[in-house]
């Protein structure tokens, strides 16, 4: 037996651990916030979304154009690296598959680029095949700016910092390169089931 904290009991665990909660996480009912600076407020009239980088032709959308694309409603569990998880969160958004339709690229990686200078890196294959959305509504309401509105990336199978808030574009890259949080020691991939919180995990 490894380390034991003297006299630590923890919350009652009369029920078996919920198989939907990854190791080291605990459930919350509210929706905590994590960000490194002030919340940006880009007016919708100035908002745009781009796909650029290693692509044959860039693509751009205004807010209205993005909202005119088909949206999906998805119910997913989310897991923040600061240890909270929230089950059955309901989002509405445009599938990244829809945005990538017709894009020719040989890239394997993506940098999500956001207002406020934030970035986060992901493998392209984690954004395709019905795994990622540009979310614009949460719980049936337009996404609040505190939580990343008007639009945030939603990649629920990775730690939630990968679901970049205030997203403005996807930049395709041939090679992986650390984004904002990753530069400060957070994991390049961030699989909550493998507890990939920090570099080296």
């Amino acid at each position: 037996m490894g380390f034991v904290s003297r006299a630590f009991k923890g919350r009652p665990r009369d029920q078996p651990r919920d198989a939907r909660v990854p190791p080291g996480q605990y459930l919350v009912r509210d929706f905590p916030v994590l960000s490194a600076g002030p919340t940006p407020h880009t007016p919708l009239a100035e908002w745009s979304f781009s796909i650029d980088g290693e692509v044959d032709a860039e693509k751009h959308w205004t807010w209205e154009e993005l909202r005119a694309l088909p949206s999906e409603t998805v119910t997913r569990d989310i897991h923040c690296v600061t240890k909270w998880s929230k089950l059955d969160t309901i989002w509405e958004g445009v599938s990244v598959d829809t945005l990538l339709e017709g894009v020719e690229t040989a890239a394997d990686y993506v940098m999500a680029v956001c207002d406020g200078g934030y970035t986060t890196n992901l493998p392209l294959e984690d954004l395709t095949g019905g795994k990622a959305w540009i979310a614009h509504a949460f719980d049936g309401q337009p996404l609040e700016s505190q939580h990343g509105g008007p639009g945030r990336l939603l990649v629920p199978h990775l730690y939630f910092w990968k679901s970049a808030k205030w997203i403005r574009g996807l930049r395709l890259m041939n090679d992986d390169s650390p984004g904002f949080w990753e530069t400060y020691g957070y994991h390049m991939y961030g699989d909550p089931w493998l507890e990939q919180r920090y570099s080296g995990d």
Partner: peptide
């Protein structure tokens, strides 16, 4: 300047 304002939030309930 927004870039000179650094924030840290103590969750979870805020």
């Amino acid at each position: 300047e927004p870039t000179r304002i650094k924030t840290e939030r103590f969750g979870p309930t805020g």
